[in-house]
Design a protein around this nucleic acid. Structure first.
Lengths: 235, 235
DNA sequence: GCTCATTCTCGTCAATACGACGAATATTTT
DNA sequence: AAAATATTCGTCGTATTGACGAGAATGAGC
Protein backbone atom coordinates (compact mmCIF):
# COMPACT_ATOMS: atom_id res chain seq x y z
CA UNK A 1 0.00 0.00 0.00
CA UNK A 2 1.63 3.21 -1.20
CA UNK A 3 0.30 5.38 1.58
CA UNK A 4 1.28 3.22 4.51
CA UNK A 5 3.74 4.66 6.96
CA UNK A 6 7.28 3.45 6.50
CA UNK A 7 7.00 3.51 2.73
CA UNK A 8 9.00 6.07 0.84
CA UNK A 9 8.45 7.23 -2.70
CA UNK A 10 10.84 5.36 -5.02
CA UNK A 11 13.20 7.74 -6.73
CA UNK A 12 12.36 7.46 -10.37
CA UNK A 13 13.47 9.95 -13.02
CA UNK A 14 10.94 10.86 -15.69
CA UNK A 15 12.15 11.66 -19.19
CA UNK A 16 10.59 12.29 -22.57
CA UNK A 17 12.05 11.08 -25.86
CA UNK A 18 11.03 11.86 -29.42
CA UNK A 19 11.04 9.64 -32.46
CA UNK A 20 10.59 12.19 -35.24
CA UNK A 21 10.21 10.59 -38.65
CA UNK A 22 10.42 12.26 -42.02
CA UNK A 23 10.66 11.25 -45.64
CA UNK A 24 13.89 12.53 -47.12
CA UNK A 25 16.08 11.50 -50.05
CA UNK A 26 13.70 8.69 -50.94
CA UNK A 27 13.99 7.08 -47.52
CA UNK A 28 12.19 7.10 -44.19
CA UNK A 29 14.54 8.93 -41.86
CA UNK A 30 14.64 9.62 -38.16
CA UNK A 31 15.99 12.58 -36.25
CA UNK A 32 18.81 11.56 -33.91
CA UNK A 33 21.34 13.39 -31.80
CA UNK A 34 24.93 12.51 -31.01
CA UNK A 35 25.28 12.23 -27.24
CA UNK A 36 27.76 14.68 -25.76
CA UNK A 37 27.93 13.14 -22.29
CA UNK A 38 28.10 9.68 -20.73
CA UNK A 39 26.54 7.21 -20.71
CA UNK A 40 26.79 6.16 -24.36
CA UNK A 41 28.86 9.31 -25.06
CA UNK A 42 29.29 9.92 -28.75
CA UNK A 43 26.60 7.43 -29.73
CA UNK A 44 23.38 8.24 -31.52
CA UNK A 45 20.23 8.58 -29.47
CA UNK A 46 16.73 9.94 -29.70
CA UNK A 47 16.37 13.58 -28.78
CA UNK A 48 14.91 13.88 -25.31
CA UNK A 49 15.70 14.51 -21.68
CA UNK A 50 14.36 14.80 -18.18
CA UNK A 51 11.48 16.96 -17.09
CA UNK A 52 12.74 20.47 -16.36
CA UNK A 53 10.67 20.87 -13.22
CA UNK A 54 7.96 19.25 -11.16
CA UNK A 55 5.47 21.48 -12.90
CA UNK A 56 6.34 20.75 -16.51
CA UNK A 57 3.71 18.89 -18.51
CA UNK A 58 4.83 15.92 -20.58
CA UNK A 59 3.78 17.45 -23.90
CA UNK A 60 5.56 20.67 -22.99
CA UNK A 61 8.73 18.82 -22.06
CA UNK A 62 8.63 16.98 -25.38
CA UNK A 63 8.22 20.22 -27.31
CA UNK A 64 11.03 21.85 -25.32
CA UNK A 65 13.48 18.99 -25.83
CA UNK A 66 12.62 18.88 -29.50
CA UNK A 67 13.41 22.55 -29.84
CA UNK A 68 16.56 22.40 -27.70
CA UNK A 69 18.08 19.37 -29.33
CA UNK A 70 16.98 19.60 -32.93
CA UNK A 71 15.83 23.19 -33.47
CA UNK A 72 12.43 21.95 -34.65
CA UNK A 73 9.23 23.52 -33.38
CA UNK A 74 6.42 21.29 -32.19
CA UNK A 75 3.82 23.33 -34.06
CA UNK A 76 5.47 22.44 -37.37
CA UNK A 77 4.88 18.72 -37.03
CA UNK A 78 2.38 16.17 -35.83
CA UNK A 79 3.30 14.84 -32.36
CA UNK A 80 1.52 12.08 -30.47
CA UNK A 81 2.38 9.78 -27.61
CA UNK A 82 3.93 6.49 -28.69
CA UNK A 83 4.32 4.57 -25.43
CA UNK A 84 6.27 4.59 -22.19
CA UNK A 85 9.43 2.58 -21.60
CA UNK A 86 10.51 1.88 -18.07
CA UNK A 87 12.37 -1.41 -17.74
CA UNK A 88 14.78 -1.19 -14.81
CA UNK A 89 18.35 -1.01 -16.05
CA UNK A 90 17.56 0.71 -19.32
CA UNK A 91 19.62 3.65 -18.03
CA UNK A 92 22.76 2.63 -16.11
CA UNK A 93 22.74 5.75 -13.93
CA UNK A 94 19.41 5.40 -12.22
CA UNK A 95 15.86 4.26 -12.73
CA UNK A 96 14.41 6.18 -15.64
CA UNK A 97 11.06 5.86 -17.29
CA UNK A 98 10.65 7.69 -20.53
CA UNK A 99 7.43 8.78 -22.17
CA UNK A 100 8.08 8.54 -25.90
CA UNK A 101 6.48 10.67 -28.56
CA UNK A 102 6.11 9.90 -32.23
CA UNK A 103 6.51 12.78 -34.66
CA UNK A 104 5.65 13.14 -38.34
CA UNK A 105 7.61 15.94 -39.94
CA UNK A 106 7.49 17.28 -43.47
CA UNK A 107 10.73 17.15 -45.39
CA UNK A 108 12.78 19.90 -43.75
CA UNK A 109 14.55 22.54 -45.82
CA UNK A 110 17.79 22.40 -43.84
CA UNK A 111 17.37 19.67 -41.25
CA UNK A 112 19.26 20.97 -38.21
CA UNK A 113 22.17 22.38 -40.14
CA UNK A 114 23.80 24.88 -37.85
CA UNK A 115 21.78 26.68 -35.22
CA UNK A 116 21.13 25.39 -31.74
CA UNK A 117 21.20 21.77 -32.60
CA UNK A 118 24.61 21.21 -34.08
CA UNK A 119 24.57 17.54 -33.20
CA UNK A 120 21.22 16.65 -34.73
CA UNK A 121 21.32 14.32 -37.71
CA UNK A 122 18.81 12.66 -39.99
CA UNK A 123 19.40 8.93 -40.50
CA UNK A 124 17.54 6.39 -42.64
CA UNK A 125 15.64 4.06 -40.34
CA UNK A 126 16.75 0.88 -42.10
CA UNK A 127 20.33 1.92 -41.43
CA UNK A 128 19.59 2.63 -37.77
CA UNK A 129 17.68 -0.62 -37.34
CA UNK A 130 20.41 -2.84 -38.80
CA UNK A 131 21.66 -5.40 -36.23
CA UNK A 132 25.14 -3.84 -36.25
CA UNK A 133 24.04 -0.24 -35.76
CA UNK A 134 24.96 1.18 -32.37
CA UNK A 135 22.21 3.18 -30.71
CA UNK A 136 22.15 4.40 -27.10
CA UNK A 137 19.91 2.93 -24.40
CA UNK A 138 16.95 0.89 -25.69
CA UNK A 139 16.36 3.45 -28.40
CA UNK A 140 16.64 0.94 -31.23
CA UNK A 141 13.60 -0.86 -29.89
CA UNK A 142 11.78 2.45 -29.53
CA UNK A 143 12.62 3.38 -33.11
CA UNK A 144 11.36 0.02 -34.33
CA UNK A 145 8.09 0.57 -32.46
CA UNK A 146 7.81 4.09 -33.87
CA UNK A 147 8.31 2.90 -37.44
CA UNK A 148 5.77 0.13 -37.05
CA UNK A 149 3.27 2.58 -35.55
CA UNK A 150 3.85 5.01 -38.41
CA UNK A 151 3.37 2.27 -41.02
CA UNK A 152 0.18 1.21 -39.37
CA UNK A 153 -1.16 4.76 -39.00
CA UNK A 154 -0.87 5.33 -42.74
CA UNK A 155 -3.36 2.54 -43.24
CA UNK A 156 -6.30 4.04 -41.42
CA UNK A 157 -5.55 7.74 -41.02
CA UNK A 158 -4.66 10.65 -43.28
CA UNK A 159 -1.35 11.19 -41.47
CA UNK A 160 0.71 10.49 -44.57
CA UNK A 161 0.00 14.10 -45.51
CA UNK A 162 1.89 15.18 -42.37
CA UNK A 163 5.05 14.04 -44.17
CA UNK A 164 4.32 16.44 -47.02
CA UNK A 165 4.66 20.21 -47.08
CA UNK A 166 1.59 22.47 -47.03
CA UNK A 167 1.05 21.92 -50.75
CA UNK A 168 1.64 18.64 -52.48
CA UNK A 169 0.52 16.42 -55.33
CA UNK A 170 -1.04 12.98 -55.35
CA UNK A 171 2.29 11.61 -56.46
CA UNK A 172 4.06 13.22 -53.50
CA UNK A 173 1.61 11.50 -51.24
CA UNK A 174 2.00 8.18 -53.03
CA UNK A 175 5.75 8.36 -52.65
CA UNK A 176 5.30 8.82 -48.90
CA UNK A 177 3.28 5.64 -48.77
CA UNK A 178 5.75 3.77 -50.95
CA UNK A 179 8.76 4.87 -48.94
CA UNK A 180 7.24 4.30 -45.51
CA UNK A 181 5.79 0.93 -46.44
CA UNK A 182 8.69 -0.12 -48.63
CA UNK A 183 6.47 -1.30 -51.45
CA UNK A 184 5.38 0.18 -54.76
CA UNK A 185 1.79 1.15 -55.37
CA UNK A 186 -0.05 1.44 -58.64
CA UNK A 187 -0.29 5.19 -59.40
CA UNK A 188 -3.73 4.84 -61.00
CA UNK A 189 -5.34 2.84 -58.21
CA UNK A 190 -3.73 5.05 -55.58
CA UNK A 191 -5.08 8.15 -57.29
CA UNK A 192 -8.56 6.70 -57.39
CA UNK A 193 -8.49 5.64 -53.75
CA UNK A 194 -7.15 8.92 -52.39
CA UNK A 195 -9.53 11.05 -54.43
CA UNK A 196 -12.49 8.99 -53.25
CA UNK A 197 -11.92 9.88 -49.58
CA UNK A 198 -14.03 12.97 -48.87
CA UNK A 199 -12.06 15.71 -47.13
CA UNK A 200 -8.62 14.18 -47.50
CA UNK A 201 -7.32 16.49 -50.21
CA UNK A 202 -8.46 20.01 -51.03
CA UNK A 203 -7.51 21.19 -54.52
CA UNK A 204 -5.74 24.54 -54.72
CA UNK A 205 -6.59 24.85 -58.39
CA UNK A 206 -2.92 25.08 -59.32
CA UNK A 207 -0.73 22.64 -61.18
CA UNK A 208 2.96 21.92 -61.11
CA UNK A 209 5.20 20.00 -63.46
CA UNK A 210 8.32 18.99 -61.68
CA UNK A 211 9.76 16.56 -64.24
CA UNK A 212 8.66 15.59 -67.69
CA UNK A 213 5.04 14.59 -68.05
CA UNK A 214 1.63 16.01 -67.51
CA UNK A 215 1.56 18.58 -64.70
CA UNK A 216 -0.02 17.40 -61.47
CA UNK A 217 -2.82 19.09 -59.58
CA UNK A 218 -1.78 20.66 -56.28
CA UNK A 219 -3.61 19.96 -53.03
CA UNK A 220 -3.70 20.95 -49.39
CA UNK A 221 -4.63 18.81 -46.40
CA UNK A 222 -8.37 18.57 -45.89
CA UNK A 223 -10.30 18.16 -42.63
CA UNK A 224 -10.52 14.36 -42.80
CA UNK A 225 -8.39 12.48 -40.29
CA UNK A 226 -9.44 8.89 -40.79
CA UNK A 227 -9.48 6.74 -43.91
CA UNK A 228 -12.67 4.78 -44.30
CA UNK A 229 -12.38 2.16 -45.54
CA UNK A 230 -8.72 1.80 -44.67
CA UNK A 231 -5.95 1.50 -47.25
CA UNK A 232 -4.34 -1.76 -46.27
CA UNK A 233 -0.83 -2.94 -47.03
CA UNK A 234 -0.51 -6.04 -49.17
CA UNK A 235 1.05 -8.25 -46.47
CA UNK B 1 20.37 20.47 -19.94
CA UNK B 2 19.56 17.72 -17.48
CA UNK B 3 23.14 16.97 -16.55
CA UNK B 4 24.26 20.51 -15.83
CA UNK B 5 25.43 21.27 -12.36
CA UNK B 6 22.90 23.10 -10.25
CA UNK B 7 20.02 21.10 -11.66
CA UNK B 8 18.23 18.67 -9.42
CA UNK B 9 15.99 15.83 -10.48
CA UNK B 10 12.36 16.93 -10.20
CA UNK B 11 10.49 14.82 -7.68
CA UNK B 12 7.88 13.02 -9.71
CA UNK B 13 5.93 10.04 -8.46
CA UNK B 14 5.31 7.23 -10.93
CA UNK B 15 2.13 5.22 -10.73
CA UNK B 16 0.37 2.59 -12.79
CA UNK B 17 -3.38 2.40 -13.29
CA UNK B 18 -5.52 -0.26 -14.90
CA UNK B 19 -8.62 0.07 -17.00
CA UNK B 20 -9.91 -3.50 -17.00
CA UNK B 21 -12.95 -3.98 -19.23
CA UNK B 22 -15.28 -6.92 -19.36
CA UNK B 23 -18.64 -7.78 -20.86
CA UNK B 24 -21.12 -8.59 -18.11
CA UNK B 25 -24.92 -8.52 -17.86
CA UNK B 26 -25.19 -7.36 -21.44
CA UNK B 27 -23.05 -4.27 -20.88
CA UNK B 28 -19.45 -3.21 -21.20
CA UNK B 29 -18.24 -2.86 -17.65
CA UNK B 30 -15.09 -1.59 -15.98
CA UNK B 31 -13.38 -2.68 -12.81
CA UNK B 32 -13.22 0.14 -10.28
CA UNK B 33 -12.28 0.43 -6.63
CA UNK B 34 -13.72 2.62 -3.91
CA UNK B 35 -10.94 4.78 -2.53
CA UNK B 36 -10.27 4.23 1.17
CA UNK B 37 -7.98 7.21 1.69
CA UNK B 38 -7.82 10.86 0.61
CA UNK B 39 -7.76 12.44 -1.85
CA UNK B 40 -11.14 11.57 -3.36
CA UNK B 41 -11.81 9.28 -0.36
CA UNK B 42 -14.86 7.13 -0.94
CA UNK B 43 -15.00 7.89 -4.66
CA UNK B 44 -14.60 5.39 -7.43
CA UNK B 45 -11.21 5.17 -9.12
CA UNK B 46 -9.22 2.90 -11.36
CA UNK B 47 -7.22 0.25 -9.54
CA UNK B 48 -3.58 1.24 -9.42
CA UNK B 49 -0.85 2.71 -7.30
CA UNK B 50 2.74 3.80 -7.08
CA UNK B 51 5.72 1.72 -7.99
CA UNK B 52 6.70 -0.44 -5.03
CA UNK B 53 10.42 0.16 -5.47
CA UNK B 54 12.99 1.67 -7.76
CA UNK B 55 13.52 -1.78 -9.24
CA UNK B 56 9.94 -2.66 -10.08
CA UNK B 57 9.11 -2.92 -13.77
CA UNK B 58 5.98 -1.14 -15.00
CA UNK B 59 4.29 -4.33 -16.17
CA UNK B 60 5.07 -6.00 -12.85
CA UNK B 61 3.67 -3.07 -10.92
CA UNK B 62 0.49 -3.22 -13.00
CA UNK B 63 0.09 -6.94 -12.35
CA UNK B 64 0.75 -6.45 -8.63
CA UNK B 65 -1.75 -3.62 -8.23
CA UNK B 66 -4.32 -5.58 -10.18
CA UNK B 67 -3.93 -8.52 -7.84
CA UNK B 68 -3.85 -6.41 -4.68
CA UNK B 69 -6.83 -4.27 -5.48
CA UNK B 70 -9.13 -6.54 -7.44
CA UNK B 71 -7.92 -10.08 -6.79
CA UNK B 72 -7.49 -10.67 -10.51
CA UNK B 73 -4.38 -12.31 -11.89
CA UNK B 74 -2.63 -10.73 -14.85
CA UNK B 75 -2.22 -14.12 -16.53
CA UNK B 76 -5.99 -14.50 -16.75
CA UNK B 77 -6.50 -11.48 -18.97
CA UNK B 78 -5.02 -9.54 -21.82
CA UNK B 79 -3.07 -6.47 -20.61
CA UNK B 80 -1.44 -3.84 -22.77
CA UNK B 81 -0.23 -0.31 -22.27
CA UNK B 82 -2.87 2.32 -23.02
CA UNK B 83 -1.02 5.61 -22.58
CA UNK B 84 0.61 7.79 -19.93
CA UNK B 85 -1.12 10.67 -18.17
CA UNK B 86 0.96 13.30 -16.49
CA UNK B 87 -0.69 16.72 -16.47
CA UNK B 88 0.51 18.67 -13.45
CA UNK B 89 -2.23 18.99 -10.87
CA UNK B 90 -3.98 15.76 -11.75
CA UNK B 91 -3.13 14.57 -8.23
CA UNK B 92 -3.46 17.28 -5.57
CA UNK B 93 -0.79 15.76 -3.32
CA UNK B 94 2.19 15.92 -5.63
CA UNK B 95 3.23 15.56 -9.24
CA UNK B 96 2.22 12.12 -10.42
CA UNK B 97 2.50 10.58 -13.81
CA UNK B 98 0.63 7.37 -14.33
CA UNK B 99 1.28 4.71 -16.92
CA UNK B 100 -2.13 3.28 -17.76
CA UNK B 101 -2.85 -0.25 -18.87
CA UNK B 102 -5.85 -1.52 -20.75
CA UNK B 103 -7.17 -4.94 -19.79
CA UNK B 104 -9.61 -7.29 -21.51
CA UNK B 105 -11.09 -9.78 -19.10
CA UNK B 106 -13.50 -12.64 -19.70
CA UNK B 107 -16.76 -12.48 -17.79
CA UNK B 108 -15.71 -13.28 -14.22
CA UNK B 109 -17.56 -15.92 -12.18
CA UNK B 110 -17.68 -13.82 -8.98
CA UNK B 111 -16.14 -10.48 -9.74
CA UNK B 112 -14.21 -9.55 -6.62
CA UNK B 113 -16.83 -10.78 -4.17
CA UNK B 114 -15.03 -11.15 -0.89
CA UNK B 115 -11.35 -11.98 -0.81
CA UNK B 116 -8.55 -9.44 -0.89
CA UNK B 117 -10.38 -6.86 -2.87
CA UNK B 118 -13.50 -6.12 -0.91
CA UNK B 119 -13.84 -2.69 -2.46
CA UNK B 120 -13.62 -3.70 -6.10
CA UNK B 121 -16.77 -3.22 -8.14
CA UNK B 122 -17.82 -3.71 -11.72
CA UNK B 123 -19.60 -0.74 -13.27
CA UNK B 124 -21.16 -0.25 -16.73
CA UNK B 125 -18.99 2.20 -18.65
CA UNK B 126 -21.91 4.28 -19.90
CA UNK B 127 -22.90 4.83 -16.29
CA UNK B 128 -19.35 5.81 -15.33
CA UNK B 129 -18.98 8.10 -18.33
CA UNK B 130 -22.18 10.03 -17.72
CA UNK B 131 -21.53 13.76 -17.10
CA UNK B 132 -22.86 13.53 -13.57
CA UNK B 133 -20.83 10.48 -12.50
CA UNK B 134 -18.14 11.23 -9.92
CA UNK B 135 -14.81 9.56 -10.61
CA UNK B 136 -11.52 10.31 -8.86
CA UNK B 137 -8.62 12.17 -10.48
CA UNK B 138 -8.74 12.31 -14.31
CA UNK B 139 -9.90 8.73 -14.42
CA UNK B 140 -13.05 9.47 -16.37
CA UNK B 141 -10.95 10.69 -19.26
CA UNK B 142 -8.75 7.60 -18.97
CA UNK B 143 -11.80 5.35 -19.02
CA UNK B 144 -13.12 7.14 -22.11
CA UNK B 145 -9.77 6.60 -23.83
CA UNK B 146 -9.74 2.96 -22.78
CA UNK B 147 -13.22 2.34 -24.16
CA UNK B 148 -12.42 4.01 -27.45
CA UNK B 149 -9.20 2.00 -27.76
CA UNK B 150 -11.09 -1.20 -27.02
CA UNK B 151 -13.76 -0.41 -29.62
CA UNK B 152 -11.10 0.30 -32.17
CA UNK B 153 -9.09 -2.82 -31.35
CA UNK B 154 -12.08 -5.03 -32.08
CA UNK B 155 -11.99 -3.74 -35.64
CA UNK B 156 -8.60 -5.00 -36.64
CA UNK B 157 -7.59 -7.60 -34.05
CA UNK B 158 -9.03 -10.81 -32.66
CA UNK B 159 -9.11 -9.37 -29.12
CA UNK B 160 -12.89 -9.68 -28.85
CA UNK B 161 -12.23 -13.30 -27.95
CA UNK B 162 -10.36 -12.08 -24.85
CA UNK B 163 -13.76 -11.05 -23.49
CA UNK B 164 -15.00 -14.64 -23.82
CA UNK B 165 -14.14 -17.63 -21.70
CA UNK B 166 -11.87 -20.39 -23.00
CA UNK B 167 -14.74 -21.93 -24.97
CA UNK B 168 -17.38 -19.89 -26.71
CA UNK B 169 -19.76 -19.79 -29.65
CA UNK B 170 -19.93 -17.46 -32.63
CA UNK B 171 -22.97 -15.86 -31.02
CA UNK B 172 -21.04 -15.22 -27.80
CA UNK B 173 -18.43 -13.44 -29.87
CA UNK B 174 -21.02 -11.48 -31.81
CA UNK B 175 -22.61 -10.32 -28.59
CA UNK B 176 -19.22 -9.01 -27.47
CA UNK B 177 -18.99 -6.94 -30.63
CA UNK B 178 -22.56 -5.73 -30.30
CA UNK B 179 -22.17 -4.73 -26.66
CA UNK B 180 -18.78 -3.08 -27.02
CA UNK B 181 -19.75 -1.21 -30.18
CA UNK B 182 -23.31 -0.56 -29.11
CA UNK B 183 -24.79 -1.61 -32.42
CA UNK B 184 -26.47 -4.77 -33.68
CA UNK B 185 -24.81 -6.95 -36.28
CA UNK B 186 -26.39 -9.35 -38.74
CA UNK B 187 -25.81 -12.84 -37.29
CA UNK B 188 -25.41 -14.40 -40.74
CA UNK B 189 -22.91 -11.90 -42.09
CA UNK B 190 -21.00 -11.93 -38.82
CA UNK B 191 -20.79 -15.70 -38.90
CA UNK B 192 -19.48 -15.65 -42.45
CA UNK B 193 -16.91 -12.97 -41.71
CA UNK B 194 -15.55 -14.58 -38.55
CA UNK B 195 -15.35 -18.03 -40.06
CA UNK B 196 -13.46 -16.70 -43.06
CA UNK B 197 -10.54 -15.46 -40.92
CA UNK B 198 -7.99 -18.28 -40.83
CA UNK B 199 -6.83 -19.08 -37.31
CA UNK B 200 -9.36 -16.95 -35.44
CA UNK B 201 -11.55 -19.76 -34.18
CA UNK B 202 -10.61 -23.41 -33.61
CA UNK B 203 -13.59 -25.77 -33.41
CA UNK B 204 -13.68 -28.07 -30.39
CA UNK B 205 -16.12 -30.38 -32.15
CA UNK B 206 -18.67 -29.89 -29.43
CA UNK B 207 -22.01 -28.11 -29.50
CA UNK B 208 -24.08 -26.37 -26.89
CA UNK B 209 -27.67 -25.23 -26.84
CA UNK B 210 -28.16 -22.58 -24.24
CA UNK B 211 -31.67 -21.44 -25.11
CA UNK B 212 -34.14 -22.71 -27.61
CA UNK B 213 -32.87 -23.13 -31.13
CA UNK B 214 -30.28 -25.07 -33.00
CA UNK B 215 -27.22 -25.79 -30.86
CA UNK B 216 -24.13 -23.73 -31.67
CA UNK B 217 -20.67 -25.05 -32.42
CA UNK B 218 -18.10 -24.44 -29.69
CA UNK B 219 -14.73 -22.85 -30.42
CA UNK B 220 -11.47 -21.93 -28.77
CA UNK B 221 -9.22 -18.98 -29.59
CA UNK B 222 -6.94 -19.68 -32.54
CA UNK B 223 -3.43 -18.35 -33.19
CA UNK B 224 -4.54 -15.38 -35.31
CA UNK B 225 -4.14 -11.97 -33.71
CA UNK B 226 -5.04 -9.60 -36.50
CA UNK B 227 -8.14 -9.38 -38.65
CA UNK B 228 -7.34 -8.91 -42.29
CA UNK B 229 -9.25 -7.32 -43.79
CA UNK B 230 -10.58 -5.46 -40.77
CA UNK B 231 -14.19 -5.63 -39.58
CA UNK B 232 -15.17 -1.99 -39.58
CA UNK B 233 -17.93 -0.32 -37.62
CA UNK B 234 -20.73 1.24 -39.62
CA UNK B 235 -20.07 4.86 -38.53
C1' DG C 1 -45.71 -36.95 -30.00
C1' DC C 2 -46.77 -32.96 -32.74
C1' DT C 3 -46.51 -28.21 -33.69
C1' DC C 4 -44.43 -23.83 -33.17
C1' DA C 5 -41.11 -20.52 -31.95
C1' DT C 6 -36.23 -19.96 -31.70
C1' DT C 7 -31.55 -19.92 -33.09
C1' DC C 8 -27.66 -21.49 -35.74
C1' DT C 9 -25.84 -22.23 -40.25
C1' DC C 10 -25.57 -22.14 -45.24
C1' DG C 11 -26.63 -19.83 -49.55
C1' DT C 12 -28.08 -16.12 -52.90
C1' DC C 13 -27.97 -11.65 -55.01
C1' DA C 14 -26.82 -6.89 -55.66
C1' DA C 15 -23.73 -3.07 -54.42
C1' DT C 16 -19.28 -1.73 -53.45
C1' DA C 17 -14.25 -1.84 -53.31
C1' DC C 18 -9.94 -3.39 -55.17
C1' DG C 19 -6.04 -5.15 -58.32
C1' DA C 20 -4.50 -5.15 -62.99
C1' DC C 21 -4.06 -2.60 -66.85
C1' DG C 22 -5.48 0.27 -71.36
C1' DA C 23 -5.61 4.73 -72.96
C1' DA C 24 -6.16 9.84 -73.30
C1' DT C 25 -3.92 14.13 -71.74
C1' DA C 26 -0.32 17.45 -71.04
C1' DT C 27 3.98 18.31 -70.27
C1' DT C 28 9.56 18.02 -70.89
C1' DT C 29 13.33 16.16 -73.52
C1' DT C 30 15.72 15.17 -77.74
C1' DA D 1 8.17 17.37 -84.67
C1' DA D 2 8.78 13.07 -82.36
C1' DA D 3 9.69 10.53 -78.28
C1' DA D 4 9.56 9.96 -73.52
C1' DT D 5 7.40 10.68 -69.22
C1' DA D 6 3.98 11.52 -65.77
C1' DT D 7 -0.88 12.49 -64.56
C1' DT D 8 -5.57 11.37 -64.90
C1' DC D 9 -9.66 8.83 -66.42
C1' DG D 10 -11.89 4.56 -67.54
C1' DT D 11 -12.73 -0.60 -67.92
C1' DC D 12 -12.85 -5.31 -66.50
C1' DG D 13 -12.68 -9.26 -63.45
C1' DT D 14 -12.60 -10.61 -58.68
C1' DA D 15 -13.16 -10.28 -53.77
C1' DT D 16 -15.75 -8.46 -49.97
C1' DT D 17 -19.85 -6.64 -47.86
C1' DG D 18 -24.83 -5.78 -46.76
C1' DA D 19 -29.51 -7.44 -47.05
C1' DC D 20 -32.08 -11.29 -46.61
C1' DG D 21 -34.20 -16.20 -47.85
C1' DA D 22 -34.25 -20.68 -46.22
C1' DG D 23 -32.85 -25.18 -44.21
C1' DA D 24 -31.21 -27.53 -39.85
C1' DA D 25 -31.58 -28.60 -35.12
C1' DT D 26 -33.08 -27.68 -30.91
C1' DG D 27 -36.62 -26.34 -26.63
C1' DA D 28 -41.45 -25.05 -25.22
C1' DG D 29 -46.36 -25.69 -25.16
C1' DC D 30 -50.14 -28.53 -25.84
Amino acid sequence: MPDDEGWTLPEVAVAVDLAVLTVHDGALQIMLVKRGIPPYEGMLALPGGFLASTEEDLDVAAARELQEETGLHAKDLHLEQLRTYGTPGRDPRRRVITVCYLGFSPNLPEPAAGGDASEAVLMPVDKVLRPRAAVAFDHKKIIADAVERARSKLEYTTLAAAFCGPEFTVTDLREVYEIVWGETLDPRNFHRKIMSVPGFLVPTGERVSRQAGRPAAVFRRGPATILHPAMLRSS
